[in-house]
């Protein structure tokens, strides 16, 4: 069943254009110039119940604008939009009762109070009966293993702990859809992995539809079967995540650190050396040659090796250049 549907969805922002300097400021007082920016353009989208969808794109691509329209925070300029059968910007309570939004850099918690205090508030806001509240709270507190943190001030929590609490506050009323905007931003690898594990479990066990925006490839790869790539407001790819990365993520960046000054051997395949000092080599290599490069350099006894995926921006740029639409 489709629970999110948009046709020709467009959002234009109008913003004041000001020249720099005092003269620019004075001119702005007399004559205002505005410019229109199209943040989302003619976007068609359907998401089925229970899907875990990744929204990918560089900064300013239009991902967050799309999420803001889907949640009713902002109104579209034109096009049609239906989420759970509602027009989101009508801001009906019945609609808001059925979804949750978690924004990595914005908090719903009260920093001076305990998490328990905030959860009590959310219990009342969503009208949860006491028993249902206790069951739901216990489930998430056990899942996130945060029993010890329920009675300390929110401001004393680490970033990872706070994000877990944000997720509990958002999930308490068992929403049908969760919109997650950069939930792992600023988290270390362990905390990010834990959060990913929780999200996967919620999607699987509760059948919650999840729309995730993230800059981290790992988040998208690990969680989302389907990915939607947006660039300059346009949808340029909509399909299987595995296929997306298989086709468009072509290179790996491998960093080698050596204990002694080391010279690179000649390589029989295409490889770009990004950085080279006697102790450190950073090499970008086609992913099919990554194993070969590792084998070749392992004989030089590196003391540390890091393998990185290509940045999301590079992948998006490649999809854009190669025409991802045909692949959707």
């Amino acid at each position: 069943m489709e629970i999110i549907e948009t046709v020709g969805l467009t959002k234009n922002y109008r913003r004041f254009k000001k020249q720099a300097g005092i003269m620019g400021s004075l001119k702005g007082l007399i004559r205002r110039e505005y410019e229109e920016k199209q943040a989302v353009s003619n976007l068609d989208l359907t998401i089925r119940e229970g899907e875990f969808v990744g929204l990918i794109g560089p900064n300013g691509a239009g991902k967050t604008t799309l999420v803001k329209m889907l949640t009713g925070i902002i109104a579209p300029t034109c096009g049609t939009i239906s989420v759970l059968g509602y027009y989101p910007n009508d801001l009906e309570h019945e609609f808001k009762q059925q979804y949750a939004v978690v924004m990595g850099q914005k908090s719903q918690l009260f920093f001076e109070l305990t998490v328990e205090d905030t959860l009590r508030l959310f219990k009342e806001i969503y009208g949860l009966p006491e028993q249902e509240y206790q069951i739901s709270k216990d489930y998430f507190v056990n899942l996130f293993q945060v029993q010890e943190l329920m009675h300390v001030q929110v401001r004393t929590l680490s970033l990872g702990e706070r994000m877990k609490m944000e997720l509990i506050a958002a999930l308490l009323h068992n929403p049908k859809i969760i919109f997650l905007d950069e939930p792992t931003i600023g988290l270390d690898a362990v905390a990010s992995k834990q959060i990913r594990g929780f999200l996967a479990e919620i999607n699987e066990k509760k059948g919650t539809t999840i729309v995730l925006t993230s800059h981290y490839m790992e988040d998208i790869k690990a969680l989302c079967k389907r990915s939607i790539v947006i660039n300059h407001g346009y949808k340029i790819y909509d399909g299987d995540t595995e296929k997306l990365f298989e086709r468009f993520q072509k290179y790996k960046k491998i960093t080698f650190i050596f204990h002694e000054p080391t010279l690179l051997p000649g390589l029989a395949f295409d490889a770009r050396i990004m950085e080279q000092t006697p102790y450190k080599k950073v090499i970008v290599v086609p992913k099919e040659n990554a194993a070969e490069l590792l084998r070749a350099l392992m004989s030089l006894l590196p003391i540390d090796i890091t393998v990185e995926e290509e940045e999301i921006g590079t992948v998006v740029e490649r999809i854009y250049q190669e025409g991802g639409k045909g692949f959707a």
């Binding site: 803001k68 009713g72 925070i73 309570h93 808001k96 979804y99 939004v101 914005k106 969503y126």
Partner: peptide
């Protein structure tokens, strides 16, 4: 600063 959104997304 955009944080007014937090009131718009809760049923209140």
């Amino acid at each position: 600063n955009g944080t007014f959104s937090k009131y718009m997304i809760i049923p209140i």
